[in-house]
């Protein structure tokens, strides 16, 4: 496939890799990997155009990509902060004090759950169990790194580090 249908070469090659992992004729299995790659590349969110491009590249009707994207919480459809903090508020984390973590985050960042800070640095999300109950409470940064056994202090350390990282990156 030389025509990438508007996708970047790197996203297209991620899709190519995933198509190869599945039996022939099951190319749709690469949709989720394609969405993730394209979302990362686009600064954290998907647009209709990107999803249609993925559909065209894989050879699916666009609606079948929309179905997958809208099913998964990790897919974002509006611009979000540089760091997405997904705080688990499910049973184990709640029993181990996720309320305090949520309160602290909301106070420190000045936004409510689901919102993005004015400077575009952080987006807060409350999510369901991310399978790290043994070290509850926990949060996840940008759908990748887990931070466990959280306290308000360790959250501050994490936030300071992310802010510093963002600044040095600029």
């Amino acid at each position: 496939m030389s025509d990438t249908h508007g996708l970047s070469q790197s996203t297209a090659s991620v899709i190519d890799v995933w198509i190869k992992k599945f039996p022939e004729g099951k190319a749709r299995s690469a949709v989720l990997a394609g969405l993730k790659a394209a979302q990362d590349e686009n600064g954290g969110h998907l647009t209709n155009e990107i999803m249609e491009n993925i559909a065209a590249y894989i050879g699916l009707p666009a609606i079948e990509v929309f179905e997958v994207a809208s099913f998964y919480d990790m897919c974002e459809f509006k611009p979000i902060g540089r760091y997405k903090l997904s705080v688990c508020t499910n049973v184990s984390c709640m029993l181990c004090g996720s309320h305090a973590i949520v309160d602290h985050l909301e106070k420190r960042l000045g936004v409510k759950m689901g919102e993005t800070t004015q400077d575009g640095m952080f987006t807060l999300r409350d999510v369901e169990c991310l399978a790290a109950c043994i070290n509850a409470p926990m949060l996840q940064v940008n759908d990748r790194e887990l931070y466990e056994k959280l306290t308000p202090e360790s959250v501050d350390v994490l936030l300071d580090r992310l802010i510093a990282e963002a600044k040095s990156g600029e």
Binding site: L60, P61, I63, E64, F66, E67, S70, F71
Partner: peptide, 10 residues
């Protein structure tokens, strides 16, 4: 033969 409708969200 045209996939025009789908089930979105969950």
């Amino acid at each position: 033969g045209l996939s025009e409708l789908g089930m979105i969200d969950r």
